Simulated scan of single mutants.
Amino acid sequence: MLLHFGSSILDITINPVTFIQGAIPQIIEKTKDDFFNNIIHVLRGAAELCYNKIKDIKCITCPHKPEGSMFVMVKLNLSYLVDISDDVDFCIKLAKEDSVIICPGSVLEMKNWLRITFAIEPASLEVGLERLKSFCERHGKN
């Protein structure tokens, strides 16, 4: 992915560096099953929390409960909002007003969708989702 900022270009890749790629098989082989089971349990609980909290936010729809991931894609319904032009505008204002960072779907070629990551501490996730709800209510049509 290339991002252009003024006269400079920032090259971002999501691939791990080669020495990490080479170490992954040994890391997985030597990690105990309890670790993986705990991670799955924590992520399953966070996915459930995220999915249930999103149901209470009028301008956001979650078409599928997340399974096997650390994020959820939700549809942003602009007809419920005032002074929000698109997903990027939504995310910028949310970050400025409530210090909540959500990835706009436009960067993934999914205009007016949002990517919400739930791979964080459950308490922080709950606070973030409450701030998201409050933001949507403040910008909602009466």
Rank of each mutant, 00 (worst) to 15 (best):
T61W: 04
E121I: 08
L76T: 03
T61V: 04
A23I: 00
K55N: 15
I27A: 15
K32R: 09
I54P: 00
V88M: 14
L49E: 08
Q26E: 15
R115Y: 13
Y80F: 06
D87N: 06
L125Y: 06
I92E: 08
L2P: 10
A119C: 08
K96C: 10
F135S: 06
D98S: 12
C91P: 10
L108H: 06
K55A: 14
L125Q: 02
L43T: 08
G22H: 06
K30M: 08
V72R: 04
D98Q: 14
D33Q: 12
D56Q: 13
T18C: 07
L78H: 03
I24P: 06
A95Y: 10
S79G: 05
S99I: 09
T18K: 05
F36M: 04
R44L: 13
L94K: 02
P66A: 13
T18R: 01
S99Q: 11
T117G: 13
P66R: 08
E126Y: 08
A47C: 00
I57Y: 05
L2G: 13
L125G: 05
K111S: 04
C59N: 12
D83N: 13
C62G: 03
A123I: 04
L108W: 06
I40P: 03
E130S: 11
F5G: 14
M73C: 13
R131P: 05
F90V: 04
F36W: 12
A47R: 00
T61I: 04
F135G: 07
I84K: 00
Q26L: 15
L114Q: 04
S85K: 03
E126W: 06
T61F: 07
N37Q: 15
T13D: 12
L3Q: 03
I20R: 12
K65T: 07
G22L: 07
G105V: 07
H64F: 13
C62P: 00
D86A: 06
R44V: 10
L81P: 02
I54T: 03
R44T: 15
A23P: 01
H41Y: 14
E67K: 05
G128V: 00
I12C: 01
D89G: 01
K75T: 02
N38L: 10
E29Y: 10
S69F: 12
H41G: 12
N112V: 10
S124E: 10
N112E: 12
D89R: 00
G22I: 02
R131L: 07
D86K: 03
L2E: 15
L129P: 02
V82Y: 07
D83R: 10
N37E: 15
L10V: 08
